[in-house]
Each structure stands twice: as C-alpha cells, then as structure tokens.
C-alpha cells in the first residue's frame, strides 16, 4: 500500500473526531433541546433573561480582566529583562517561573490557601482579591512565556537603531519594543483571560465564594440540568471565538508575529 505523509495525521484525526468534534455536536444538541429531546430556544432566552446568570457573566468578565491585567503587569517586566538581556542564567530563571507548573495543581493551590490564611486570617474576608491572586498564581507562566519568546526573538539591532536615531530609552521602549511585542501580549492575554473566566476549581479549593461562569455551569450540571449547562458553555465558546477572531486579525497585520502560541 502506498504510504503518504498524510497518513501520519490519522491518529490525530481520530482523536479530534472522538474527543473534540463529537462532544461539540453533543453540546450543540443539548443546548437547543429540552428534557423531552425537542428543539427549543428556551435555554438561550433563559440565560439572557436571568439576572443572576447575566450578573455572573459580567462578574466573570471583571475577574478575568483584572487577573489578566495583574498577570500582564507582573509578567512584562520579567519577560523584558529576560528577553533583552544577555544573561547567561536566563534559562534557569525561566525555569523558576515554569517550575510551579510541574508541581501537582491541588498541592500548589492548597499551599497558596495556607499562605493566604496565614496572612489574612479569614479567607472569606477578601473573596475578590483572593480569586485574583489564585488565578494569577495559576496562570502567570502562560503570560510570561509568550511575551518572553516574542521579546527574545526581537532583533536587538532594532532597539539600537531607535537609540541611534535619537530616541532615549523610554521612547525606544514605547515606540519600538512595546509595539513589536504586541503579538506576545495577545498570545498571553488569550491564554489567561479566557481560562480565568471559567476556572472555578481554583476558587473552590480556596473556599472562595466568588461565583464565576465555570461555577455556574458546574451548578447546572450537578443539578442534572444538561441543557441549561450546555447552553452556557456554548455561549462562552462563542465569546471565546469572537475574542480570538478580533485579536488574531490584529496579530496578522504584524509581520513579526512569533509568539509562543
């Protein structure tokens, strides 16, 4: 039998069909049916007329936005220093930021919980702050790595050219380095913002009362309301798609895209 390179893709195609496409179809089916298996728009209109559900959506957006901003502010300076210096030890430092990801997730969050309890006394006192800290802690490496990769690939001669043409270090950063690292920022933001809206496991483990989209879906499913939960998941999916579409259009205009993902 003739073997072509295309055949190498078969295992992934099977995986894609079974674990991505099929569940999506199931999700779609459940979202637009009721308990009797009949087509209905009830789930969709239900979501947008339920003030609690809408409130959760906006609150999730707020948590995600704040978390993403905090991640960006923490990650950019680190990525900048590592990406633009000629430090010999930079791979070690990068490793230090990535290493927490190798430690078991629940152990990590439990440790964070203990530390926060030690500092704050009662975790229930600052639910919003704790939610932001927890999610930031979990996702920070995903913000650092793409920005670092972009800055590291950035030709150092561009910064020198800016200085050579009379731009001081601040202007060089604002007019050259920052605009050229936008692909990395977008990549980092999309890896933090979207998961931050749904990652309620972190909050659960922090005994956090904050209710986000993930929690909402979880509560529907634990009440065996597959139809309502599926619709919310679908709505999130649409939001994610719109977001990605918007940002990737921006990224393509930039010929130096080269972020991690």
């Amino acid at each position: 039998m003739h073997f072509s390179r295309k055949n190498l893709g078969i295992p992934y195609a099977v995986f894609l069909t079974v674990f991505v496409i099929a569940p999506l179809l199931v999700l779609l089916f459940y979202a637009f049916t009721n308990g009797q298996g009949q087509f209905t728009m009830q789930n969709l209109t239900g979501f947008f007329t339920d003030p609690n559900a809408l409130g959760t959506l906006f609150y999730s957006l707020l948590i995600a936005a704040v978390t993403t901003l905090v991640c960006l502010l923490l990650a950019y300076p680190v990525a900048y220093i590592l990406g633009t210096s000629r430090l010999k030890s930079r791979s070690v430092i990068i490793m230090l930021f990535v290493m927490p990801m190798w430690i078991n997730f629940s152990l990590r969050i439990t440790a964070l919980k203990e530390v926060l309890t030690l500092i704050e006394g009662n975790l229930a006192r600052y639910p919003f702050t704790n939610a932001v800290i927890g999610i930031t802690y979990d996702f920070l490496p995903f913000m650092i790595l793409p920005i670092y990769t972009t800055l590291e690939k950035l030709d150092g001669a561009l910064r020198e050219a800016a200085m050579d043409l009379g731009a001081d270090p601040v202007r060089t950063f604002l007019q050259v380095t920052l605009p050229l690292s936008v692909p990395g920022i977008i990549s980092g933001v999309s890896m933090v913002f979207l998961p931050a809206m749904t990652n309620y496991v972190v909050l659960d483990m922090l005994y956090n009362s904050t209710y986000i989209m993930g929690s909402l879906i979880g509560s529907y499913f634990s009440a065996y309301n597959w139809h309502g939960g599926s619709m919310i998941a679908l709505i999130l999916l649409v939001i994610i798609c719109l977001f990605t579409l918007l940002t990737s259009e921006d990224g393509e205009e930039n010929p130096r895209g080269g972020a991690l993902l």
Binding site: L158, E160, G166, D168, V176, P179, L180
Partner: peptide, 20 residues
C-alpha cells in the same frame, strides 16, 4: 555620551528597519 545624544547615525548590517 549615550548613542541618542551623538550626532552620528548608523546603517546596520541587516538594515534594522522598524517592521511595524
């Protein structure tokens, strides 16, 4: 004197034009 204060300009080896 830092480079941005020198009345000297450079043509770089691989041009270093700003891609954005």
């Amino acid at each position: 004197l830092p480079p941005y204060k020198r009345p000297i300009n450079t043509v770089f080896q691989r041009y270093a034009l700003f891609p954005h």
